[in-house]
Design a binder for these strands. Structure first.
Length: 469
DNA sequence: TTAGGGTTAG
């Protein structure tokens, strides 16, 4: 019906009028366009919606999205259609409106992707996004989960300070911060190796009266494991049990992995054997549990036991995965049994698993250490042929492999090419090359690389420079 | 939320 009205000449004039002026002189005209779009959108009559597109304003876009809050897919489709096909430049308010709608319908992946786009591509700061989310909060009948999502979006793009700014601002504004947001931030700190700051933020959270949930306890156990404080980690396990929180498989896996990393494989095995009994058959081991244990045995050089553990997992119905094989292949390689490593490669391919970058990196690394240049080159060509993408590990393995076998100039040529292609993500390759250049008394070359590190924002290890000069 | 691969000095 509304379309009929708008298909007239009069409508055409109205539409032109909307397009020229940013604000409506008559609010009811906005209502007419809004309602017309809604009617046609509801019936998926995109062609008719298209005819209204020249009359779109930020206000109408946001209103339409709110109108379709119970049909989030359609709301998102409309939002994307306007942005992509009509090249309409969405305002921050429109973005936030659709984000509220998406979070409320638990479409977190889409909401996170839009938030990340706002901060990474559009250049909005986390606090600017927060402010607009707050402004549109009530009108969108939103929930605090939207703020959790913003903290998550910040941590996902590595914006540590941004995430913490959001938490601080939410507290100041009286919105409160959910335990999920705290946990997400704490997890981010651990993943970035900031254990000291983790404990500061954790203490702050506890002092504010939050009750730790399972995830929070797991993070504390994870932090203790990272600090090699296994006894403290285990004591947290008892503290959570006392508080009525039942550990899950992640809790056990972290303790098992922690024990393995500290070389106490017997304790790791004991935990594995007791986890069912301790939880009344509530928690059973999974592939992660077994992979941790296999890795523990591999690092101790006890390869035959590692394979026995693999057989046990198969027996109880847990399929070995890519990580199981990557662990065993690396275990055999670092123990000088490359033949066994290749046997496992065949085995994994036979099971339908495709060797990835990690598997190639392991074998290439140990081939170089054995001075098998031809073998390493062959595998490098093979990974390129099979479209297995090299990563920063591959490049540093290549640099080290070439240097230690006397091919420093070739390493420098490759490094230059890798830098030109912007493929380097960390400073490992630089450090390796600088070390070998210093050893061969090529201080000018080392200094040149040092400059290249600064340009890329890598912070050199100063102790090195003292030695080389 | 947990599991696999790469560096230097001595």
């Amino acid at each position: 019906m509304f379309f009929v009205l708008f298909s007239s000449k009069r409508c055409h004039l109205l539409v032109r009028g909307f397009h020229v002026g940013k604000h409506f002189s008559n609010p009811s005209t906005e209502d007419i366009v809004f309602k017309a779009i809604c009617v046609n959108l509801r019936q998926r009559k995109w062609k008719l919606v298209d005819q209204m597109s020249s009359s779109l304003t930020d206000s109408i876009v946001s209103r339409v999205i709110r109108e379709f809050r119970t049909s989030p897919e359609l709301a998102l489709e409309f939002f994307k259609w306007v942005g992509e096909y009509k090249s309409f430049s969405h305002s921050l308010e429109s973005y936030c409106t659709v984000i509220h709608v998406l979070v409320n319908s638990r479409r977190y992946v889409d909401a996170l992707s839009l938030m990340k786009n706002l901060m990474q591509t559009k250049g909005y700061s986390p606090l600017e996004v927060l402010e607009t989310l707050v402004d549109s909060y009530e009108m969108c009948l939103s929930s605090p989960a939207v703020f959790d999502s913003l903290v998550r979006a910040c941590t996902q793009i590595g914006a540590t300070e941004g995430a913490f700014d959001v938490i601080k601002k939410l507290r100041m504004e009286g919105f409160g911060v959910s335990i999920h947001a705290w946990n997400n931030f704490l997890n981010h700190l651990l993943n970035f190796g900031e254990v000291g700051r983790f404990w500061m933020v954790y203490k702050e959270m506890v002092s504010l009266g939050y009750f730790e949930n399972l995830h929070a306890f797991n993070l504390v156990i994870y932090a203790f494991c990272k600090e090699c404080k296994l006894l403290e980690a285990i004591s947290q396990f008892y503290r959570m049990s006392k508080g009525g929180i039942i550990a899950n498989v992640v809790t056990f896996n972290m303790l098992i992995d922690g024990a393995c990393k500290m070389g106490d494989i017997d304790l790791a095995l004991k935990i594995l054997r007791k986890m069912r009994v301790m939880t009344g058959d509530f928690v059973t081991p999974n592939s992660v549990t077994y992979n941790c244990l296999i890795n523990g045995y591999c690092k101790l050089g006890r390869l035959s036991i590692a394979e026995e553990v693999q057989n046990e997992m198969v027996k109880i119905g847990i399929e070995p995965n890519l990580r199981t094989y990557a662990t065993l292949i690396d275990g055999y390689s670092r123990n000088g049994s490359l033949e066994e490593a290749f046997r496992l490669c065949d085995d994994m391919v036979g099971r339908g698993l495709v060797p990835n970058t990690v598997v190639y990196n392991s074998i290439i690394h140990w081939l170089y250490l054995e001075r098998d240049m031809a073998g390493a080159s062959l595998l490098l060509s093979d990974m390129i042929k099979k479209h297995v993408c090299p990563d920063s590990f591959t490049y540093s393995i290549l640099m080290k492999g070439l240097c230690r076998n006397g091919y420093i100039n070739e390493a420098l040529t490759y490094h230059k090419w890798i830098l030109e292609k912007n493929l380097i993500e960390d400073d490992f390759s630089h450090n390796i090359l600088i070390n070998y250049l210093c050893k061969s008394k090529n201080i000018a070359g080392a200094k040149q690389l040092l400059g290249s590190m600064f340009i890329r924002g890598f912070i050199p290890d100063l102790s090195h420079i003292w030695y080389s000069n």
